[in-house]
Amino acid sequence: MILDGLAGIGRQGLNFFATMGRAGIMLFNALWALPNIKKSWPLLLRQLYVVGVQSFAIIVVSGLFIGMVLGLQGYTILVGYGAENSLGPMVALSLLRELGPVVTALLFAGRAGSALTAEIGLMKATEQLSSMELMAVDPLRRVIAPRFWAGFLSMPLLAFLFSAIGIWGGYLVGVEWLGVDQGNFWGVMQAAVDLNRDILNGFIKSLVFAVVVTWIAIFRGYDCVPTSEGISQATTQTVVHASLAVLGLDFVLTALMFGE
């Protein structure tokens, strides 16, 4: 009984490392080549549109609402201490340090990540990847690489957009609706937000999340069992694993950046 349990743990451990190895090899083979600009550029542009531009709406709407909620909640708490003038930095710091990168990554995993997994998985199931290989075109460079770079480039931009819209949402609620002084809102925010400590660290976070989420999404699609059940499983795994990885890494990064 105990031995079975131990063997099970060992098997899972081996599986985990084998999967990590395959994922690493896939990414290495996809990216380790001089890109042919003329051929890669249109592919990248198309993926930037699909992965980045099409995620625009969900990011803007979520950013706005989260900013508004932050404004409202922050005000009701701060006003009890007579500190409603600190609403500006509270909204800005929460968004720039945490909510911008993290929520963007979570939304990105659900919107673009799942779509990437399903698309690549379906290409595998319908033998499109195989036939590409047989036409002597490497699907890792042709299909995987542009999707990876598109995710890597668009997520930090989306995170900035999210924070900017969120701050505006906080302003709408705090200043326009609840009557916090406009000068205080912006002035105190400007004094409290630091370029390196807050904005740059937030940017680094979203770069890390971009790599992790996009990598998980394309690998899950590329490595899926090529059946309808396999694809649905891979899509779910993408969202679950990417979300967990983002939240876990966020703690590690926060501890490293703001820990002392």
Binding site: T126, Q128, M135, A136
Partner: peptide, 15 residues
């Protein structure tokens, strides 16, 4: 592989 090619059962056209 540039010298060979294969016709898949599904056709495997790029959708």
């Amino acid at each position: 592989r540039k010298k060979m090619s294969m016709l898949f059962q599904s056709g495997a056209l790029f959708s």
